[in-house]
Design a protein around this nucleic acid. Structure first.
Lengths: 338, 338
DNA sequence: TGATTCATTGCAACCGGTTGCAATTCGCGC
DNA sequence: GCGCGAATTGCAACCGGTTGCAATGAATCA
């Protein structure tokens, strides 16, 4: 089935080296042989075997795309952008779907090794930093997208400052005059949730007059948000909630509506992510927008650069978020504080 | 960086063949050498290079997963199941993200060839059959998931009977006593839309007393659905709509609510897919469920089988759909007709 | 004990390319 | 026509494995 280098060489009446060289950038071939080879290649329908060449060049142009977020709608956009971004640079995404319980990187590393990926992107807001660090230790250039900020990162991290986002959410609620607020987080062991809670609570410590409470949903999911919000509404302690992410928020929103309450009149909600559905007019969720495109662009840049120079010092790139004003928080009551 | 077969062989004091054989199923190796090799391999942290071995075996265990549906939330579930299903069989998904305008398979085929994929799955409800047929012609075992039914298929097709679904939707509306119904399709050139319209209209031809109209949204998207439904509501001709898919339906639903109308009291809507969001209580869309898990399971089975026996005759596997009763259609008025 | 069989093992060629090196060819000036 | 350096080309080894084949060794049977 496959047309090989040798076939082309034969047909063109040249050596295999000549053929190989016409297909490699910047190699020394005369215009004449190049023409002969190209003619023969076209006639035979030849295209070089990327895997065979990777044996000698050491580059497969394969990038492992590792994620455990196959249930968060935001990640459809994430996968879309990652795959497209990689393709645009001539790279190929090898997708790895981690189960939520899977926290041991060894199996994945072994697999990525077997396929000699040039690098890997770990796209997850819940995996601990040690996960990606194991990749680096195994010699695989890696970027942790949507990962946790660190002042002394062991691997490249691209994402948002979750602590700052928590703070931003708190300030948004304060600015709208809410006096009893709550954090309704994702799973307590997710790094993103931990950081968001941290920032949220820190900001509110500066406002002792405001009542704060904290609870955690068992997952970043609609149902978990709905269940947890239902529980919270029974206690009725808070006027407004900062929810772990948008899916959770929409679940919470659903619980509010179901309880016969109105949003934002009775209960305010602010989410985080700004996934596509949040802007749907019949959801209309006020939320904090995460600049997904920028994060992914930077992640790809970084992994490509690291493949070129593996000794590159690990760095953290955080992108600013901003509040997207929609319908689940009442308007700002006083001049907005920056 | 990489530990090779030779390193292990040296350390274990055996030939490279011996090492290779301990790592291949059913090869002849004595327990003694196997032990020696395994000890050495473990000590060195060796794992065989899948790409190198593919050179001789002709199997990469790579499966091209080709799709142009990176904006339909259903496909997050689709990718989740595909990747997991492939992984469970020791296969690796190489993801290809087609732009909606991209209808020429050549570039993708060339790329999949370069990576010597064992097979490919084309997951799309909008691409024409000729797309996957080109894969087959190029010698790549292929399955078209969510594809169009054909009595004389040129490639394996797994999916639903869109014509039957259109009919099912029509019957659902009739059974609920709607007298003026409409089909609000996806893009007119999508095969799935064409077939759904066909079935819908065919069923209604048997009910000349019922008024039917047809229109098409410009895409399978929320906005397109909202825009088209807004347009339709101005004319106010129909009482109930069969929308091209769930995203479209939710957009339409939003338009209904925005127009100050209630669903299902004033306007009924039935979708198709039953994606996760449709069951969210604050959406609560009545829809026709597509058995995604079964479709994907069958697709993987089929592609694997075809890799084993490429001469396998192309076949079509269609899975039955069923109406999921939720809140956007009024209840059945007369004994439900099967 | 000797003949025979069968499992195990290593050699070496091969999978489809790449690349260092030496040989060849070319263009050019004289 | 000759000499020279530079450009082009092919040879052959190599990338990391697999596998047919023949050689080896152990086990079985008479």
């Amino acid at each position: 089935m496959g047309v090989t280098l040798k076939d082309v060489a034969e047909k063109a009446g040249v050596s295999t080296s000549a053929v190989s060289r016409t297909f490699t950038e910047g190699a020394s071939v005369s215009a004449k042989t190049r023409a002969k080879v190209e003619r023969a290649a076209k006639a035979l329908g030849y295209s070089p075997n990327a895997l065979a060449s990777s044996l000698t060049t050491g580059r497969t142009k394969l990038i492992g795309l590792v994620s455990n977020n196959f249930h968060n709608p935001l990640f459809l956009e994430v996968f879309d952008r990652f795959t497209r971004g990689l393709q645009d640079r001539g790279l190929r995404p090898l997708l790895v779907n981690l189960t939520p319980q899977e926290t041991d990187p060894e199996a994945t590393i072994r697999m990525l090794r077997q396929y000699s990926v040039d690098g890997a992107i770990v796209a997850s807001s819940t995996l601990p930093p040690t996960y990606s660090e194991a990749f680096r230790a195994a010699g695989i250039p890696v970027v942790n997208s949507f990962g946790r900020f660190s002042t002394a990162p062991q691997v490249h991290v691209v994402g948002i400052d979750n602590v700052a986002c928590g703070r931003m959410a708190a300030e948004a609620l304060i600015a709208r005059g809410y006096r009893r607020v709550a954090f309704l987080g994702g799973p307590e062991n997710a790094t993103s949730t931990q950081d968001r809670a941290l920032g949220f609570l820190a900001a509110l410590r500066e406002h002792p007059e405001i009542d704060v409470s904290v609870s955690y949903a068992r997952a970043y999911s609609f149902d978990a948000g709905r269940v947890e919000m239902t529980k919270q509404l029974m206690q009725g302690r808070a006027e407004a909630y900062f929810c772990g992410d948008d899916v959770l928020s929409i679940g919470a929103l659903s619980a509010v509506q179901e309880a016969g309450l109105r949003c934002p009149e009775d209960v305010g909600i602010i989410g985080l992510n700004d996934m596509e559905m949040s802007s749907w007019q019949n959801i209309n969720l006020t939320t904090i927008r995460q600049p997904v495109a920028e994060i992914i662009g930077a992640s790809i840049d970084l992994v490509v650069d690291t493949v070129e120079s593996p000794a590159r010092h690990p760095e953290t790139r955080l992108f600013p978020c901003r509040v997207i004003e929609r319908g689940t928080l009442r308007p700002v009551t006083e001049p907005r504080q920056t």
